[in-house]
Nucleic acid binder design. Structure first.
Lengths: 341, 341
DNA sequence: TTGTAGGCGTTATCAA
DNA sequence: TTGATAACGCCTACAA
């Protein structure tokens, strides 16, 4: 039988009101009483019942995040880091992070969102992988539930998000490579229907144009944002009669696959060939050479996103509602080498 | 303003009692009434308030899992898959999965567990990475909160777990390697305070002994269950005057690091050197050669673990309280090659 | 500075 | 078969 506020009150011969307010830090309770209450609460192992407090306060004190588990075995470190960022940021408050998995676009996904909203399960939601047309956006904004997202889309509804500017970021990467002396710069992209692919590819072309380098479409290959995708996509590029000296990848995972393929062929990454990523996965798992990518990292973005959501919930008002971050280049070994001109 | 049971009752000119029971499937309500209630509830978008129901029922309808985020940027795919397994299994019920992050052994970790228990935040907990001496075990069993773990330890307390038998598994791996013709078999282990390390290492030695191969301690290196750890640990082994022809790793990630190091040195994994993992991470990210590891996978174990916990919570009694699975070998390319004798 | 009392939305007991 | 009513544990306006 768990300890309730009544037990503490009885023990101290005080009313539950006083106990409640002493614990909540109201200033209309004498310092001496407060100390006694705090002391007793700790000794008895008392913590307010979550359910009761939620009912009374009409707040769930929880944030929800639905993992887009397309396969049962998703393992992009992007999501681990994203969750870590959300978790670390929320840790300071006493809000909880509630996580569910559902395949994107699935009926189960819709059920889940509805249940969370109708049963007032969470006070806010973090939306990942926004689709071009996303019913969730309208649903949540109609329900009046605060949410933030990792990208914007073309829905008519305005909502807060933080997004890395893929175009300027990729353009900067290409210009960096050019600055290193590279002229034959390849690009490995993602699935065509993703917004981020369109933007990053546009950035790639922009970067080339800025240096008046002619676009060669044999230097473009399609991956799928996985290591494996990068590994396979790069094979054709490396087999070319006139192969690239630098390879700009749509994300970090693709770049890791590329590096693996290169080193299997005896090419030294950072010397014989330059490789760059995008996303800033800061991963102790990753092995040298360190990957040139950009900041802020996913982890950082997740933290800011959570902060933004909490402010929205608490204050009701946030200053910046939509943030388009210009990524900064984080040059490391993988693109240190000089191109062959 | 969310819809409550009163709204539904008023709309139908029924009492809240009837509505509640119609929705909960009691059989003392006429079929006609039930249909009307269900219909109206759906139309009005009614779902019972989580908080109120929890308060009344004295149940949180949630399971907790604390991610051992040693650094802010943990990214072991093991955890992604573990979470996916928990999430997919719980999805059938209307329980939620509550996830927090805390560095293992940290004060914050302890606070978190205490808060969850005292505020009756969760009905059960999944414990990962059990330590040899783990205060959590005693704490939870004293608090009477159901929990399950991914391993047992030497605490005097009995608790339900599912565990891959590290000893027999690793022993089987070593014997497999011996069968392939290897005699110089190295082992790369994990942190010493982990139970799984003790067991898997014991399995390694058992496997050698079974074939009367003399144990060489220069063939043992310590990693930390990361790719990077495997990558570094294997360097010394490969630099030996009399290097190993096969390397058994404590987990899949370590093995990936080892494969990377080997291929950088021009060694063909599966031909020049055999490498094996442990855990059965079934990861679309992983690149060839396919890694010899074992089944059932983490994902599978997570599902069974969640199932076990739910049964314990619901029924109060579970048949098998501790399951020691004998892992089956999943031989793939990485250990296909023949040893040099 | 402290105590009394009402109600948050359910579910469960009992009576009609 | 249905309805009135009492908790569940907490917070807070109001009274003392």
């Amino acid at each position: 039988m768990p300890i309730t506020i009544h037990d503490v009150a009885k023990q101290l011969k005080l009313s539950i009101t006083t106990v409640s307010r002493a614990l909540d830090g109201y200033d209309d309770v004498s310092e001496e009483t407060r100390q006694r209450v705090i002391q007793a609460a700790r000794e008895m192992g008392y913590a307010p019942s979550r359910a009761a407090r939620q009912l009374r306060r009409q707040q769930a004190e929880a944030i929800g995040y639905i993992l887009p588990a397309s396969t049962p075995r998703f393992t992009d470190p992007y999501f681990s880091q994203f969750i870590a960022g959300l978790g670390d940021e929320i840790a300071g408050s006493n809000y909880d992070l509630v996580i569910s998995t559902a395949p994107p676009g699935d009926a189960a996904e819709e059920m889940l969102y509805r249940r969370w909203v109708h049963s007032r399960r969470v006070d806010g939601i973090v939306l990942a992988r926004i689709r071009k047309q996303d019913w969730r956006v309208r649903f949540l904004s109609e329900a009046g539930l605060p949410f933030v997202a990792t990208a914007h889309n073309h829905d008519p509804v305005d909502f807060p998000y933080i997004e890395l500017n893929g175009q300027s970021g990729m353009s900067a990467i290409v210009q960096h490579l050019i600055h290193q002396g590279h002229r034959k710069i390849a690009y490995i992209g993602a699935q065509e229907d993703l917004i981020l692919e369109a933007e990053r590819f546009a950035g790639y072309r922009m970067g080339l144009e800025a240096a008046r380098i002619v676009f060669r479409d044999d230097l473009v290959a399609a991956g799928d944002m996985t290591r494996r995708g990068g590994y396979h996509a790069v094979q054709t590029l490396l087999d070319l009669v006139d192969p690239p000296t630098a390879i700009a990848c749509v994300n970090d995972l693709t770049a890791e696959g590329v590096m693996r393929a290169a080193s299997e062929r005896g090419l030294r990454v950072g010397q014989d060939v330059a490789v760059t990523g995008f996303d800033g996965i800061d991963d102790p798992e990753v092995i040298e050479p360190a990957l040139t990518s950009c900041t802020p990292s996913v982890y950082e973005i997740a933290r800011r996103l959570m902060d933004m959501l909490m402010k929205q919930i608490k204050g009701g008002f946030i200053q910046e509602t939509s943030i388009l971050l210009t990524p900064e280049l984080n040059v490391r070994e993988s693109s240190a080498g000089k191109g062959s001109g």
